[in-house]
């Protein structure tokens, strides 16, 4: 394995440091996912409102956040707002803000889609059975909405985990940064470290995302 540079991983605390970096990335995505789930449900409910002003505003928010690359949003938050508002934002905080804003928009759109996909006659047949508004929402609409929504939400989560790799670019020390440091420190003794270490990072990201997408696929198959 000498030639491929995997052995640096077993030197000292290198592997533990790498895992620490993965945790930083996962922590950012977990916090952002948490915020997005709650705010996204509210957002989705807002988006189904008939009020044209509310409709236009939520639409504008969604499209703005959606059309910009997440990297641009990170730059705006990290370089832009610190300049314009004079506050001191750490890279990690900026990342959480950006991913939460983006996640809320995407989540809101999923919730809207799920709510609107329930056909009218489902409400009507619930009413025909004598259920009142609250009951029909709880027992008829909500379960169907959730079934539609859950696989898509889980997919969104994998997308958010993958996107956290970008925070390297605004100076957050996560897995990729740690990898760079390890490779740099061993430049002389293990010249091939870049191969082994980056491949390991790739595999670790895969291991973080793959089980989640498998879960989404399984739920989709079971509930469709």
């Amino acid at each position: 394995m000498q030639a491929l540079g995997f052995e640096v991983l077993w030197k000292g605390k290198n592997f533990a440091r790498l895992m620490g970096g993965l945790w930083v990335a996962l922590r950012i995505s977990l916090i952002a996912v948490g915020i997005s789930l709650v705010a996204g449900v509210l957002m989705g409910a807002l988006m189904t409102r008939k009020n044209p002003v509310v409709k236009a505003l939520t639409r504008l928010y969604l499209e703005t956040v959606r059309i910009m690359p997440q990297m641009v949003l990170l730059f705006l938050a990290f370089f832009g707002t610190t300049r314009w508002f004079g506050w001191n934002l750490s890279g990690e905080t900026a990342s959480v803000i950006v991913f939460a804003l983006w996640g809320t928009a995407e989540m809101g759109d999923l919730v809207r889609g799920a709510l609107e996909s329930i056909p009218r006659h489902q409400y009507e047949s619930a009413a025909a059975l004598g259920l009142d508004g609250k009951q029909s929402f709880l027992y008829v609409i909500l379960p169907q909405t959730l079934r539609r929504l859950l696989p898509q939400v889980i997919n969104l989560v994998t997308r958010m985990i993958k996107t956290t790799s970008l925070v390297l670019m605004i100076g957050v020390v996560e897995m990729l940064k740690v990898a760079q440091q390890i490779i740099e420190a061993n430049r002389m003794k293990v010249p091939n470290a870049a191969f082994g270490v980056y491949l390991t990072v790739l595999v670790l990201y895969f291991l973080a995302c793959w089980p989640v997408s498998l879960l989404a696929k399984a739920l989709e198959k079971r509930w469709s």
Binding site: L4, A194, F195, Y198, L202, Y205, F206, C209, S213
Partner: peptide, 17 residues
């Protein structure tokens, strides 16, 4: 299931090794 950034790092810095 892997981010493009990491794929690029591997292609650009890893493969030349």
């Amino acid at each position: 299931n892997t981010p493009l950034l990491i794929q690029l790092f591997f292609l650009y810095y890893g493969l030349p090794k």
